[in-house]
Amino acid sequence: MLEIRNLHASVEEKEILKGISLKVNAGEVHAIMGPNGSGKSTLANVLAGRPEYRVTVGEAKFEGKDLLAMLPEVRAREGVFLAFQYPVELPGVNNTTFLRTALNEARKYKNQPEISAGAFLSMLKKKMQVVEMPDTLLSRAVNEGFSGGEKKRNEILQMAVLEPKLAILDETDSGLDIDALRIVANGVNKLRAKDNAIIVVTHYQRLLNYIVPDFVHVLYNGRIVKSGDKELALELEDKGYDWVKDETVTAQ
């Protein structure tokens, strides 16, 4: 589904990603861990097409197509979804209108008719139950004045509505209380299917108890320095990042 080869990316002339290669197949869940500032969000944003990040070398293919050549909105319509580490507030933009517009853009792209207001609302109701989100948040402006946890839940609601092929969750677990964590994880697990893939960026093994990954990668200083299965996350939890850092130094 996603194939990244030797990806280098810079922001303001500073190289952040220094050669990332990663293959994600349909049906898989990958976890990306790594210390603060190692480039996890940068990778997520580069895949989503954030204009501030410049890809200097390398390629990324999504279902065989050149992902990096697409506009951000086209990537989204193709089925790439990024749950933001810091969801953006859109004052005045109604949450329901926003969700429906987003869904209809994807449908138009696939030559499907726009969804009617009625059908949309009943679908939305069901999705709301999945993330246990109160109705009141729907009539408000997107993320405006939402608590940290509400913003994260709203991201998962958007994901549930848009049903992406590839979902990239950037620290969706941070700032969530225990109950919310389980709810969000549930929402993510509902999306898990043999046709979909998920990349979870997280600092905590805790989330991976709920969303059990097939692979775990450690990103350090712009490179994937270690990959393994779910046991790697437990090991990291136990030993911290220093030993992986040491290993890289030795390897070089």
């Binding site: 989503a48 954030r50 204009p51 506009l71 951000p72 990537r75 987003a102 853009e105 848009l162």
Partner: peptide, 16 residues
Amino acid sequence: TDQIFYLNQRGISTED
């Protein structure tokens, strides 16, 4: 630009 990108990421063009 972060607002525009957020909307882009949900499939909405810059103009919209």
